[in-house]
């Protein structure tokens, strides 16, 4: 990467940050949704369920889903940020970028970095709920959670860019929600333990990359007993998936006219 393309990545990143900071409604609704899940769903199910020992590490349900809700927030924000490329295309701004003397790779990477930063910021907002849930995070834990959130966000934003690269209009957005975002969320084990599932469902959770992101968050925030896999294998899978997606995203962008 030369200076030209580093500047381009920076400017695309900066634009995403400015737009995020300015968009109050997005900020509010993106906090409201996880809060609903966490407090309404979490509290409601905690009352009705007594999943003896199945949650791992003696956690109650609301504590158990808390890392999952952070994963959900990152997922939704990442995909939404990536899909905004389609808006840019429809509203013409995309041409301004495509006619500039910068590499297509810089455009894809700038978008991935911008989208992941925004998703990480959203995740940080949810971290402020920790005292309310009764989860206490030490400084070292925070230092692990932040880069992990960025890593998960980067992988998912890159996946979103791969999808958005060939989408001509926003009409496909509903399809993306129904056939990509919701399955990724529901199969990730964000809302239920994945250790004692029937075979077919277990199989589906294994191919969901978010499973490993949520698992890693759980291990760091709630302790090693809360996880279904080891932290090392979780991180390896998320990193490999993220790397594959950004390479694919760059490749898809090179093909667009």
């Amino acid at each position: 990467m030369n200076m030209v393309n580093l500047r381009a990545i920076y400017s695309i990143w900066l634009r995403d940050i400015i737009r995020y900071r300015r968009d109050r409604s997005r900020l509010i609704s993106s906090v409201a949704q996880p809060a609903l899940f966490l407090f309404v769903f979490g509290t409601g199910l905690s009352q009705g369920l007594a999943i003896q020992g199945g949650l791992g590490g003696g956690n109650n349900y609301i504590t158990f889903i808390y890392p999952g809700i952070i994963g959900m927030t990152i997922l939704f924000t990442s995909i939404f940020s990536a899909i905004s490329i389609v808006w840019d295309r429809e509203f013409g701004f995309f041409k301004e970028v495509m006619v500039a003397p910068i590499s297509r790779a810089a455009v894809a990477i700038g978008k991935a970095v911008g989208g992941s930063t925004v998703a990480m910021l959203q995740g940080i907002i949810i971290l402020f709920f920790a005292p309310l849930i009764g989860v206490s995070l030490s400084i070292p834990q925070l230092f692990l959670v932040l880069p992990l959130m960025f890593l998960i966000a980067f992988a998912l934003t890159s996946l979103g860019i791969v999808v958005a690269a060939r989408m001509a209009t926003m009409e496909g957005f509903q399809m993306v929600m129904n056939f990509l975002v919701m399955p990724l969320f529901l199969l990730s084990g964000a809302m239920f333990p994945i250790t004692k599932l029937p075979g077919w469902l277990k199989g589906l959770t294994i191919i969901d990359p978010l499973t490993y992101g949520v698992d890693a968050l759980r291990i760091i925030m709630l302790g090693p007993k809360a996880g279904a896999y080891s932290l090392v294998s979780d991180l390896t899978i998320v990193t490999v998936f993220g790397a594959a997606m950004i390479v694919l995203a760059v490749f898809m962008f090179k093909g667009t006219e």
Partner: peptide, 10 residues
């Protein structure tokens, strides 16, 4: 361009 291409939120 013939069609608008500004980022209207900036």
């Amino acid at each position: 361009f013939q069609d608008p291409s500004l980022d209207e939120r900036l």
